[in-house]
């Protein structure tokens, strides 16, 4: 597996997709800062409930505020990263050396995990620094133990994002082409964003709403103090999503013929 990781390191460092992803991730907090400055100057003072990130302390919430953009970036990245291996036929080079499909799948998932982690760290760090620099560090209303809140929200939001991205990995191992990967991951993102709203309309389906990672990302108010109590459930939902999506993705990959 270490061999595969070394090979992927060469591929990623030499190709543009990882650098483009990281460039967008770096640009994202800067763009949000400029947008917030503009709003603050011309449309009235920022309100935490609405704008989510209003100072350095709330910078940790940038991954929540920009979650759809982050997910769409990873829709594209994962589809290119995995889809190209199938389209170029290069997956044959790894598998024909006796590498098991399980290890191959886990290696890809691990790389995506690392890049998601790096991205969320960059976004959090840049947002905290840039918003802190302009608006002051400040505080979050109702949060007394900021350190605990910071680490818990960083971990939870990262896991929620990664759980959705792990589904993208599974989808790409199922469809095995870049174009289809982009389309299906996009459809999945939008559907899972809208579906919980529909669930709420039916009493029998209401319970399902909060078993979808995206429900927390899109609809939960992370600025309220009460959200802290829901972190364990969010972590559980994320882990369950990663495990189930990985099992489905791997099973589909294991059964498939590699062209």
């Amino acid at each position: 597996m270490l061999n595969l990781l070394m090979a992927d390191k060469i591929k990623l460092f030499r190709s543009r997709k990882m650098w483009i992803t990281l460039a967008i991730v770096i640009f994202l907090p800067i763009f949000q800062l400029l947008n917030s400055i503009s709003k603050n100057e011309y449309q009235g003072k920022l309100v935490q409930k609405m704008d989510i990130v209003v100072n350095g302390a709330t910078g940790v919430l940038m991954n929540v505020k920009a979650n759809l953009v982050i997910l769409l970036i990873f829709c594209a990245f994962v589809s290119f990263y995995i889809g190209e291996e199938f389209q170029n036929g290069t997956i044959r080079n790894s598998l024909s050396l006796g590498m098991s499909r399980g290890k191959y799948y886990l290696m890809k998932l691990l790389v995506v995990f690392c890049l998601t982690l790096i991205s969320t760290v960059i976004i959090t760090a840049l947002s905290t620094i840039s918003f802190g620099g302009y608006f002051g560090f400040g505080s979050i209303a109702g949060i007394n133990n900021y350190d605990y809140y910071f680490w818990m929200i960083s971990l939870t939001v990262f896991l929620l994002l990664f759980s959705v991205i792990s589904v993208y990995v599974a989808i790409n191992f199922m469809v095995r082409s870049t174009g289809s990967g982009i389309i299906w991951t996009f459809i999945f993102t939008i559907t899972m964003g809208l579906l919980p709203g529909a669930f709420l309309k039916f009493d029998s389906l209401k319970g399902l709403t909060w078993w979808v990672s995206e429900s927390f990302l899109f609809y939960k108010d992370f600025t309220s103090q009460s959200v802290i109590g829901e972190f364990p459930k969010m972590i559980l939902v994320s882990v369950v999503t990663v495990v189930i999506s990985t099992l489905i993705g791997y099973w589909s990959f294991y059964k498939s013929d590699i062209k």
Binding site: N3, L4, M6, A7, K9, I10, K11, R14, S15, R16, E84, N88, T90, N93, S94, L97, M99
Partner: peptide, 16 residues
């Protein structure tokens, strides 16, 4: 890998 050079393609497989 179309985006890589011949040497890099070889390096990837050597690493594999």
């Amino acid at each position: 890998y179309p985006e890589l050079t011949a040497v890099d393609n070889m390096k990837v497989q050597a690493a594999n």
